[in-house]
Simulated scan of single mutants.
Amino acid sequence: MKLNTYLLRQVILILCLTMVSATWAQDTKKTVINKKTVINKLVVKEQKAAPKTATPTSKKQTSAKVKAAPKNDKKRKVQPVKKVNNSRYIALKTNVPFDALAVQNLALEVQLHKHITIDFPIMWSISDIEREHAIRGIALQPEGRWWLKKAGTGHFFGLHTHLAWFNAKWEDNRYQTAKRPLAGAGISYGYKADLSAHWGVEFNIGAGYANMKYDTFYNIENGAWLNTRIRHYWGITRAGLSLVYRF
């Protein structure tokens, strides 16, 4: 009995090993087949992605293609950049330092010739700085300008005249134009630089003569009249650093 049991166990063990080896062989074959399939798919994809090499063509076919191809030799037309209309210089300006001193001002400049413009500034003040210090008045200072390069660009020289009416308080006295306005004339130099197509800055300074006749009063309410004076002034008559807008 013992021998038969031993033989039976041996047979069962051999059968189990046989079945395991057969199963392992089948799995190995499937793995190999799967690997081959994957490699074949990759090769096919690479072939599809690869650029097709041009087949050799005859000279006649090449010349025909060249003739049929659209001509791209013509240069593209470059559209001109839109610029500000330079046919006439017209600008609106304000003198920034005067604005800072509470003297409001505006100026209009118009071109008359390639090198000639007329600048017409107006200045006014209607507010008191404090009780003892105030400048109230209005002033006009038209100027003709000669631009060295062209109107509104670079250096210029000017000839100006001025008219002004004032009522100024300073310390103990008040000064007021009498019967006629302040009047005079002068010459100036200036320079304008462009910041953009429309914006720019302008510097100018001028000197000349001014004649004024004014009354002096005590600087109190309804202060008494003191005297009337006529003064001849020689010196700076025009100065500014203006912000310019060109139309």
Rank of each mutant, 00 (worst) to 15 (best):
K71R: 14
N167M: 05
L106A: 11
H113W: 12
I230P: 00
L195E: 00
L8Q: 07
G184E: 10
Y214H: 13
K192F: 01
T18H: 02
K48S: 08
Q47W: 11
T28E: 15
P70H: 13
E46C: 03
A185F: 15
K67D: 15
E143V: 06
F166G: 12
V244S: 12
S188F: 02
T23L: 04
L92C: 04
Q104D: 06
V20N: 10
L108C: 01
E143D: 06
N227D: 15
R131C: 03
K60E: 03
T161S: 10
I33M: 15
V201G: 11
A139E: 06
H133S: 01
L241E: 04
R174D: 02
K35C: 10
P97Q: 02
F120N: 13
K29S: 09
P142A: 08
N40S: 08
N105R: 09
W170M: 07
K150M: 02
E202S: 11
Q10N: 08
R246G: 11
F157H: 06
W24Q: 10
A54T: 10
L15G: 09
D27K: 13
R88H: 09
R180E: 12
K213C: 12
T57V: 14
E46T: 08
R145V: 11
R88D: 06
Q61I: 03
L42R: 05
I138F: 12
Y191C: 06
Y233S: 04
A185M: 14
W124H: 02
R231G: 04
K2V: 13
Q141M: 15
N85T: 11
I230E: 01
D172E: 15
E130H: 03
W199L: 11
G154R: 02
I14W: 08
N4R: 15
A107C: 01
A168P: 04
F156R: 07
L7M: 07
A107I: 01
S196V: 00
N219L: 00
K52F: 05
D215V: 08
R231D: 04
R180W: 15
Y175R: 00
K83C: 13
Y233E: 04
T62P: 01
G144V: 15
W225S: 13
A193P: 00
T28N: 13
A210W: 07
G200Y: 02
R136E: 12
R9Y: 09
K149N: 11
T62K: 08
N167E: 06
L112P: 04
L108F: 01
V103K: 03
N204W: 10
Q61M: 00
D119R: 08
I122N: 05
I118N: 07
A69E: 14
D73G: 14
E130F: 03
Q10V: 07
G158T: 06
A54V: 11
T117L: 03
I39W: 08
K60S: 02
L140N: 07
N85D: 15
Y89K: 03
N40E: 07
N211Q: 12
P80H: 10
